[in-house]
Simulated assay, not measured.
Amino acid sequence: MNTNGAAVSSRRETWKRVKRMKLLYALLLLPVVHLFLFSYVPMYGVLIAFQDFKPALGIGGSDWNRFEHFRTLFTDFVFLRALRNTLIISGLKLCFGFGAPIVFALLLNEIVHPRFKKWTQSISYLPHFMSWVIAASILVEIVSPQRGVVNYVVTLFGGEPIHFLASKTYFIPVMIASDIWKEVGWAAIIYIAAITAISPDLYEAANVDGASRLRKMIHITIPSIMPVIVVLFLLRLGHILEGGFDQILNLYNPLVYEVGDIIDTYVYRTGLAQFKLDYAAAVGLFKNVVGVVLLVSANLVVRKYSEHGVW
């Protein structure tokens, strides 16, 4: 009886809290409905990855193909090339692009002059709000062999103009650099917020002990924001097979397909240009499954050796 009474009392308290915060739950309802309609309902369409899909027959009327598309994946040279390029580009972005916002946030935190700090932070955000259509147009002008400022500097020192976006050697470095330029300021926001949450008492104690600014950064700032770094790294790892569709689509061309074609652009060409919707769905499903497996595996490893993790 006591157990039942406690359960009833707990339910009553829960309903009281729900009634008290009903407006907050009402606000939560809209994003939940949006998530359900646009993220979960479309999962039904994944079935076409296992079919010889014919739009006239629909999902219910198309024949099952016994995983034929998935067998084709690993014999398709173009897909394997796109997979290799995706891993290379995403890996380089993870190595250089993930650490850049952390370094930027740490350096920004060391700026003493408040007005200069505010202007620096605001300017670093601006590229994020440009679409890759606009950013790509700016980048094309910057690296243009005829009128670009980069090639002007190259020729000024006696070199020959370089067509960066048509060169297999320079295309990937340009992608990495432009991605960092566009996203470093925005990605640093969460690290800056984490740094501002650090107790000032820690820095005051370090000042008393005579610690330099570098020592305080190494022994106070970085360890304090490490949980945030770990969580964001795990989330980023789950997107390892996303090389940056908008960026690549707006900047690549057939001359650099060998190094610049990634899974997303391959799916775009296969699904929309060639209208192989079922095969494109199989490629997309493969990419998402790999991302989930990587995220879960990495989280389990991190949770085993530390107290940090996504869940």
Rank of each mutant, 00 (worst) to 15 (best):
residue 145 P to Q: 14
residue 102 I to S: 10
residue 145 P to F: 12
residue 112 V to F: 03
residue 120 T to L: 02
residue 123 I to L: 10
residue 106 L to H: 06
residue 137 S to H: 11
residue 140 V to I: 13
residue 128 H to Q: 09
residue 121 Q to R: 11
residue 110 E to M: 07
residue 113 H to D: 15
residue 121 Q to Y: 14
residue 114 P to D: 05
residue 123 I to G: 04
residue 143 V to D: 03
residue 120 T to P: 00
residue 115 R to T: 12
residue 132 W to S: 10
residue 99 G to E: 04
residue 107 L to W: 03
residue 125 Y to R: 00
residue 110 E to N: 10
residue 134 I to S: 11
residue 140 V to C: 01
residue 95 C to M: 11
residue 131 S to E: 11
residue 135 A to K: 00
residue 95 C to V: 15
residue 107 L to Y: 01
residue 140 V to W: 10
residue 112 V to L: 02
residue 150 V to D: 04
residue 102 I to T: 12
residue 140 V to F: 12
residue 103 V to E: 05
residue 121 Q to I: 05
residue 148 G to F: 02
residue 100 A to H: 08
residue 143 V to Q: 01
residue 115 R to S: 15
residue 128 H to C: 09
residue 130 M to D: 12
residue 129 F to P: 06
residue 120 T to R: 00
residue 115 R to W: 15
residue 100 A to L: 08
residue 110 E to L: 05
residue 129 F to W: 09
residue 106 L to M: 12
residue 95 C to A: 14
residue 97 G to Y: 06
residue 124 S to L: 09
residue 100 A to P: 05
residue 117 K to W: 01
residue 112 V to K: 12
residue 106 L to C: 13
residue 104 F to L: 15
residue 112 V to P: 02
residue 117 K to M: 07
residue 126 L to H: 02
residue 97 G to L: 10
residue 133 V to G: 12
residue 98 F to Q: 06
residue 138 I to M: 08
residue 95 C to Y: 13
residue 96 F to A: 02
residue 145 P to Y: 10
residue 127 P to Y: 10
residue 129 F to I: 11
residue 120 T to W: 00
residue 147 R to H: 08
residue 128 H to I: 12
residue 118 K to F: 05
residue 148 G to E: 02
residue 147 R to P: 06
residue 97 G to K: 00
residue 121 Q to K: 12
residue 99 G to P: 02
residue 98 F to V: 15
residue 130 M to T: 10
residue 132 W to I: 10
residue 100 A to I: 10
residue 96 F to I: 04
residue 105 A to Y: 13
residue 134 I to F: 01
residue 130 M to C: 07
residue 134 I to E: 05
residue 103 V to W: 09
residue 114 P to A: 05
residue 147 R to K: 11
residue 137 S to I: 09
residue 142 I to F: 14
residue 141 E to C: 06
residue 136 A to V: 11
residue 127 P to D: 15
residue 139 L to V: 12
residue 109 N to W: 02
residue 135 A to F: 15
residue 113 H to G: 06
residue 131 S to W: 03
residue 98 F to K: 02
residue 117 K to Q: 15
residue 138 I to E: 09
residue 119 W to S: 07
residue 143 V to T: 08
residue 133 V to A: 14
residue 129 F to S: 06
residue 122 S to H: 04
residue 106 L to T: 06
residue 128 H to E: 11
residue 120 T to A: 00
residue 150 V to T: 06
residue 117 K to L: 04
residue 105 A to Q: 05
residue 104 F to G: 01
residue 151 N to R: 01
residue 103 V to N: 04
residue 146 Q to I: 13
residue 150 V to W: 10
residue 144 S to E: 09
residue 127 P to T: 08
residue 114 P to R: 01
residue 119 W to H: 03
residue 142 I to M: 11
residue 99 G to Q: 03
residue 110 E to H: 03
residue 104 F to P: 01
residue 128 H to W: 14
residue 135 A to Q: 05
